[in-house]
């Protein structure tokens, strides 16, 4: 049976893992390679590395980091942050990333999704959507969730699927950092409309939140950061809990 996936997200700045609340007030949570390897051993189903600064200078650091991760991690991993061209994607895949995640650059130039899917295959193109509820509507935001667009989230999800995205990483800016639970209704809406997997992100604070997002939220995968980094929830215990709740989980021993 196809399982639901648990995905720790490692936000990277200057080659280190950081995570803040609502994307500000960053705290240091350790070495990304070491952390990634630990998660893989613990039974994480996939890893996501988001380079949250991604200036030109830091690009080389990121590539080197990806190479180090690929040497030790034997599960799929996605790299995102500042990707805006075929050359960026090619460099990351060549360094050993299995998928890349694009966000603002896709909003700026939606044809980029088509180009990347054609060149590298849909399976490795994740489109991240940062969304916020504004005046009664879910609206796509860019630049780490700071800049609103005019695009409705559901329409954008359908568009990127049509353009060849392989997966949607849906982050609710309303729930992110709150630990009050995922945006269940929105996730269910997007996942129900899309025929590609939806990774729900933002708001995980308890094991029960994962149950909700996989059942009512219809998510294919659940992503979280700080609760894993600071060991508030440990992955083996989470997977056992979900499994006992009747949710299909990968067992690893």
């Amino acid at each position: 049976m196809l399982t639901k996936r648990i995905i720790p997200c490692l936000d990277i700045k200057d080659g280190r893992t950081v995570k803040g609340t609502n994307f500000v007030n960053l705290r240091d949570a350790g070495d990304p390679v070491e952390l990634g390897a630990i998660y893989a051993r613990q039974g994480a189903d996939e890893l996501v590395f988001l380079d949250i600064t991604a200036t030109v200078d830091e690009r080389k650091t990121l590539i080197e980091l990806v190479r180090r991760v690929a040497h030790v991690v034997n599960i799929p991993f996605t790299v995102g942050g500042g990707i805006s061209s075929k050359a960026d994607v090619s460099a990351l895949l060549n360094a050993g990333a299995d998928k890349v995640s694009i966000n603002s650059s896709a909003v700026r130039n939606p044809a980029l999704v088509d180009e990347l899917a054609q060149e590298f295959g849909s399976q490795c193109i994740v489109v991240a959507i940062d969304t916020r509820f504004v005046n009664g509507e879910h609206i796509v935001h860019t630049h780490g969730g700071r800049k609103p667009t005019e695009i409705r989230t559901l329409a954008w999800a359908k568009e990127i699927e049509n353009r060849g995205a392989g997966e949607i990483l849906l982050t609710s800016m309303d729930t992110d950092g709150t630990k009050a639970g995922f945006a269940i209704e929105l996730t269910a809406q997007i996942s129900g409309a899309a025929n590609i997997p939806v990774i729900a992100s933002g708001g995980a604070g308890s094991m029960e939140h994962f149950v909700e997002v996989f059942t009512d939220g219809k998510a294919d995968a659940g992503l979280a950061a700080s609760i894993f980094h600071f060991k508030e929830i440990e992955i083996p215990a989470l997977k056992r809990y979900l499994s006992n709740q009747g949710i299909a989980m990968r067992t690893t021993d």
Partner: peptide, 10 residues
């Protein structure tokens, strides 16, 4: 059933 079949299966 979404297509592609993506993820861990037994």
């Amino acid at each position: 059933f979404k297509v592609p079949h993506m993820g861990w299966n037994s």
